[in-house]
């Protein structure tokens, strides 16, 4: 017993959700000379963009009337929709079926006399939840129109709402008018870029490429697939293939569209890879911009010195998502007993878990989550158990306590990379009364 390794704990500073959002001053822009957190360095080899969480007090889409508890509940509801959509898409891909294959027959394409694309057909039903939590500000077209786009590593296509609208959701600021942009360029139906779309069609009268993207949670967009210029305050990139959506459904956080960061060939990183920035990017996400800020970086400076790497895995049927091989989870320094197949992707021999910017709460297969939950509860016998909250099932009443000890939770990846999580990444407040929950969930919830 003397030689048994001591459990590893760390201190959680108890600070429940405020009764209302405090005013948070805009963080001084530590990126230096840039405006709003964008700069170009190293002779165009690095691009840095500030990201903002949709519920942050700094967000232009923030709802000042919503309480932090309401915002959290809404966030978890969005998360359920997104996780379900990813699950369905992945399972379909394992059978060689793409989610978009399910809707193609229900949509009819027609072209108006003036060449404007129109779409008719039954609309998809279901949850109309936003597909992402963080957004960037960028310029579209020439001259650039400032817009906000949701970033999403679970999507490949860049798109924004365009006039004329067959059906557009309400967005912050004016909808992009391609007629006012000198850099807007239609893509022909026979262009290679058009054929790279998962789902495309052709407007016969104008020989222009049409795209459609369905997100599986009820959200979708369809319109012209075009080339356009994107500007990031100091850096402008022309000829970016993107969707100009005339029929868009879903609550994309009032943003103008979606900035696809997925692994497919039409995502922004993939298109940049063909240009100048080496197909390397990174992001850092913060909840409330209190210490440090969220940012998205492309190019050589996107890789910090102390980075631990693990191989990216390929899913032969679905190249959108970024998979890694999670080989273990430790609680308090002890590896959990989890069967190796817990994190396998499908029956094709591939394995891995998805690293996603747009899903909030980590979902684990029940055979992995069960041991995690049990080990965490066993390591916290003195904390007053408080049942569950939303998709969380392990909560504690920490009211009246300033600091508590919780076991260290680490994720271990192939190649030795380890994410030793700060306490705030897995024990989170859910109300103003001091209730905290273990912020993991079973992937089977809501299945």
């Amino acid at each position: 017993a003397r030689h048994r390794r001591q459990p590893r704990y760390q201190v959680l500073h108890v600070s429940p959700l405020p009764s209302k959002w405090q005013e948070v001053p805009r963080v001084a822009d530590s990126l230096g000379q840039s405006e709003k957190g964008v700069r170009k360095v190293d002779n165009s080899t690095t691009l840095i963009l500030r990201l903002t969480h949709r519920d942050s007090p700094l967000s232009p889409f923030a709802n000042p009337k919503a309480s932090p508890r309401e915002l959290l509940k809404n966030r978890l509801a969005r998360d359920e929709a997104r996780a379900s959509a990813i699950s369905v898409r992945t399972k379909l891909a394992a059978r060689g079926i793409r989610a978009n294959d399910l809707v193609v027959e229900s949509v009819n394409y027609t072209a108006r006399e003036q060449g404007v694309v129109d779409f008719a057909g039954p609309l998809m039903s279901g949850l109309k939840q936003g597909s992402g939590e963080y957004f960037i500000e960028l310029g579209v077209g020439s001259p650039p129109r400032q817009t906000y786009m949701v970033i999403d590593t679970g999507s490949d296509i860049i798109w924004l709402q365009c006039t004329p609208c067959v059906d557009c959701y309400t967005q912050s600021g004016p909808i992009f008018d391609p007629a006012l942009s000198s850099s807007y360029e239609s893509l022909a139906c026979t262009s290679p870029l058009c054929s790279m779309l998962e789902l495309h069609s052709c407007a016969a009268q104008t020989n222009s490429c049409l795209y459609q993207v369905a997100y599986g949670d009820g959200s979708f967009t369809q319109g012209d697939f075009v080339l356009e210029a994107l500007s990031f305050r100091g850096a402008t990139m022309g000829g970016i293939a993107m969707g100009c959506g005339h029929d868009n459904e879903g609550l994309f956080a009032s943003a103008a569209g979606l900035f696809g960061l997925g692994g497919g060939p039409l995502s922004f990183p993939s298109q940049l890879g063909n240009l100048l920035l080496r197909r390397v990017f990174s992001y850092c996400l913060m909840d409330r911009d209190e210490s440090g800020f969220s940012s998205l970086m492309f190019g050589s400076a996107a890789v910090p010195m102390n980075t631990q790497f693990t191989p990216l895995l390929k899913n032969p049927n679905l190249n959108t998502y970024y998979y890694v091989s999670l080989v273990g989870i430790s609680v308090g320094g002890s590896m959990l007993s989890i069967p190796p197949q817990a994190f396998r992707m499908d029956g094709n021999g591939g394995g891995g878990v998805i690293v996603d910017s747009g899903t909030s709460v980590t979902r684990l297969a029940e055979v992995a989550y069960g041991p995690l939950r049990s080990a965490f509860r066993e390591a916290t016998p003195d904390l007053p158990f408080a049942g569950g909250f939303s998709l969380f099932d392990t909560c504690y009443n920490l009211s009246g306590q300033a600091n508590v000890r919780v076991p260290l939770v680490s994720l271990h990846f192939e190649g030795g990379a380890e994410m030793a999580l700060p306490t705030s990444n897995y024990v989170i407040p859910v109300d103003t009364e001091g209730t905290y929950c273990l912020a993991f969930a079973s992937a089977e919830i809501g299945a």
């Binding site: 692994g263 990017f281 992001y283 850092c284 709460v361 980590t362 989170i428 992937a443």
Partner: peptide
Amino acid sequence: VSIIGNIQQQGFRIVFDGVSSRLGFAANQC
């Protein structure tokens, strides 16, 4: 399907290296 969500990613810089086909984590890089 298991997914590592953004609450667990907070405070880490998540690096996607499409050239070397690897993904990286760097703590305290926001």
